[in-house]
Each structure stands twice: as C-alpha cells, then as structure tokens.
Amino acid sequence: MKAYSIDMRERVLQAVEKGYPREEIIKLFGISRSTIKRYLKQWHETGNVDRRPIPGRPSKKFAPLQAGLTAQLQAHPDVTLERHCQLWEQEHGQRVSTTTMGRAIRRMGWTRKKRRWVPPNETKRREVLGENSSSSSTPANWS
C-alpha cells in the first residue's frame, strides 16, 4: 500500500489541532483511528510527519543493473526476460533471476510495449463503445 501524501498528513494534524472529533476526521479523510494516533506520535517525537524509510536492506543487484541495463535494453529491445538475464550474465558475470530483471526494467520505466500506454479521453472512449448521441441503443443487426 502506498503511503499517504505529506499534504494529507498535515491536513489530518490540522484538523486534530482545530478540535474536530476523531470520528469526523476518520470519515472525512478515509483513514483509521490508528493512523491518526501514529501521525500524532510521529509529530510529537520528530516534529514532522514525513514518510518513514522502508525497512530492510537495500538491493545488492539493482544498483549495478540500473547502471548498465539501459544500454542492453536499447541494443536488444525485443528479447525476452530470460534472454536479458543471459545477456547480463555473459557481459557482467552476475546471474540475475527473471523476477529481478523484470523489476529492474519496470523501475527504469521500460515496458514490453513499443509505446507507452495512455488512457483514452472520454470522447474516444465513447466512440469505441459506440455511445454516440445520434445512434440508437442497439445496432440494427443485433435484432
């Protein structure tokens, strides 16, 4: 789950400071009572409500992958994840799983598609679905 924005955290604290009832804050922001308690505790201990770092050690393989993977992706844009892993091992001598390779490629913003996906705007969506105001609700050949 993604962390709430710092702006929202600050608005929650402002609502608490202004004296709004906790139940009203919970309904207004869609958060739990424990989230409010956690924000207040963090505010009193540190003086801010910034996001805390994700626990655990950093990845050992991602930094080298990030440094050299762009050239490999540009040279071989259409190969499979398995083939990317083989190429990486041949060039760098480090074995990488397909899962790790896929995560690294996604973190760098690359997709398997040739161009980035962009959601259609409302007009195009209606044209695709056949929702024009001049057309009837059922096509003539469906009856």
Rank of each mutant, 00 (worst) to 15 (best):
M1T: 06
A3T: 03
Y4L: 11
S5D: 08
I6F: 02
R9E: 02
R11D: 15
L13E: 01
Q14E: 10
A15H: 02
A15V: 07
V16M: 01
E17C: 00
E17W: 07
E17S: 04
G19F: 01
Y20W: 15
Y20E: 13
P21W: 11
E23C: 13
E23T: 12
E24A: 15
I25Y: 09
I25K: 00
I26S: 10
I26V: 13
K27M: 03
L28V: 04
F29I: 07
F29M: 06
F29A: 01
I31W: 00
S32F: 04
I36E: 12
I36M: 06
Y39T: 08
L40Y: 08
W43E: 07
W43V: 05
E45S: 04
E45Y: 11
E45D: 12
T46C: 00
G47Y: 06
N48L: 02
N48F: 07
N48D: 15
V49D: 00
D50N: 13
R51P: 03
R51T: 02
P53G: 01
P55Y: 14
P55W: 08
K60T: 11
K61E: 14
F62T: 00
L65E: 04
L65V: 03
L65Y: 12
Q66V: 00
A67S: 15
G68E: 10
L69H: 08
A71C: 01
H76Y: 07
H76L: 09
P77K: 05
P77C: 01
D78Y: 13
L81P: 04
L81Y: 14
E82L: 12
E82V: 13
R83S: 14
H84Q: 12
H84D: 08
Q86M: 10
L87E: 07
L87Y: 05
W88F: 11
W88T: 03
E89F: 15
E91H: 11
E91W: 09
H92N: 03
G93P: 10
Q94F: 07
R95Q: 07
R95C: 09
S97F: 12
T98H: 14
T99A: 14
T100V: 10
M101W: 08
R103H: 09
A104C: 02
A104I: 06
R107N: 08
R107Y: 13
M108V: 02
G109R: 01
W110M: 09
W110Q: 13
W110H: 15
T111Q: 04
T111W: 11
T111N: 03
T111C: 11
R112C: 08
R112Y: 12
K113R: 15
K114T: 12
K114F: 05
R115W: 14
R115G: 09
R116H: 07
V118C: 03
V118D: 02
V118S: 09
P120T: 07
P120M: 04
T123D: 00
R126H: 09
V128T: 08
L129C: 02
G130N: 05
G130K: 02
G130A: 04
E131H: 06
N132L: 12
S135M: 10
S135D: 13
S135N: 15
S136A: 15
S136D: 11
S137D: 13
T138M: 13
P139Q: 15
N141T: 14
N141D: 12
S143C: 08
